[in-house]
Simulated scan of single mutants.
Amino acid sequence: MPNIDLSLEELKKYKGISPNPLDMDKFWQESIQELKKTEEEIKISSSDFQTPICNCYDLTFKGIDGEKIYVKMLLPKEIKDSVPAVVEFHGYGGNSGDWTKRLAYPSSGIAYFGMDCRDQMGNSGENYLRSGNLIRGVLDGPKNLYYRKVYLDSVRLLDIVFKMDQIDKNRVATMGYSQGAALSLVGASLDNRVSKVFAIYPYLCDFKRVWNLDLGEFAYQELRDLFRWYDPLHKREKEIFETLGYIDVKNFVKNLKSEVTMVTGLMDKVCPPSTQFSVYNAIHSQKHHLIYPDFGHENINGLEDILYQWALKIK
């Protein structure tokens, strides 16, 4: 079998090498308390896009810094009792996609929410950047990290969903690919009410391992850019990786209560398999790992059907 990383036997034991800050839990507890003190300013309106299959809404709220965050909300046509919900987060540099992409969920009696991450290519924020977000704020300490804000956006969205009368509080799930998988896992780690998670080749894991392997492409290229432009002698290397530890997914998942399904392609050169296994091996809740030996960071044959069948079981 082709191999770009550790053997499968070694992967199943790998715990990760990136730092886990000693005050990790305290930092995020304080961050959530800070979030709760800020205004949500939730607004929901009918979208210009409508379909006979479901009701489509534009939902916006404000993040911890007052940034407006946009969410596609699709609800079943007639809700007599509360319904399950899936909250999806998109991949790095993208957006929530077309409305038609997720019509299967509301047509099957499942509410659907798709968040545009701030300052990427959706309707959240103002800058619409494709890259550079991983390292934004890293030289200024953990409170200034871009992903601290995005993680808190995911927490706020989940809280909004849980407060909705139409939603069954016992049947709320998160899902996503890459960056979206990271947000799905972190959101559920910070809000233990989430019942299930489907995380497909998660990004933002075990940064030091990515650096050591020199396998990171695309989004992880920013780590190299950071050192080349701002720390060419690596005088701040230890500090930088310690700061990134505050947003490292593997450092969150010990708190998960959700049932987790994770997907890893063993040929993934964007998010190396060992970085993903560092997350999976740290999860203590019920979990399942779908391992694809011949796939990398790409569309996987049949996976969307598996994802849909998983969502049906939220019911």
Rank of each mutant, 00 (worst) to 15 (best):
K313I: 04
M24E: 01
F49R: 11
D268R: 05
P202W: 09
L215Q: 15
K80Y: 01
K43F: 12
N299A: 04
V253Y: 00
L6Y: 11
D225N: 15
P293D: 03
I64H: 00
K250L: 10
M175N: 07
D23L: 01
Y292A: 08
G302Q: 06
S45L: 11
E30W: 00
M175V: 09
L6D: 00
Y246R: 02
N133T: 14
Y57V: 07
I69H: 08
V270K: 08
A181C: 01
Y151H: 10
L152I: 00
G141N: 06
D268V: 01
N281K: 09
T275C: 15
V279M: 07
S274W: 09
K37G: 05
S184K: 09
K313A: 10
S154D: 10
T243Y: 02
P293F: 04
L139R: 15
F227H: 07
I79S: 06
I247L: 06
D225F: 12
K72R: 15
E217D: 11
M262S: 12
M115R: 05
K287V: 11
P106I: 02
R209N: 12
S274I: 07
K13Q: 15
G114C: 12
D48S: 14
G302V: 04
A173G: 13
K37D: 07
F162L: 14
L233H: 15
C205K: 05
N123G: 08
S124W: 03
G180H: 03
N251Y: 10
Y105M: 09
S47I: 06
Y177D: 05
I64S: 13
L139M: 14
G93M: 05
A311K: 01
M267Y: 03
D65P: 00
Q309N: 09
K43I: 08
I44P: 09
F277Q: 05
E304V: 11
N192Q: 14
V87P: 02
N133E: 09
G216K: 06
D214L: 11
G245V: 10
V150T: 09
A111Y: 13
P293E: 01
S45N: 12
L11T: 05
L139T: 09
M262T: 11
E40F: 07
A111Q: 10
K196C: 03
I110C: 01
K143L: 13
R136P: 00
H234M: 13
D206A: 06
K196M: 07
F218P: 00
S31F: 02
N301T: 06
G94T: 08
S195A: 13
F89N: 06
T60D: 07
H90V: 12
Y128F: 11
V186P: 02
F295T: 01
F207S: 05
V210P: 03
I291D: 02
I4M: 05
K15C: 08
G176V: 04
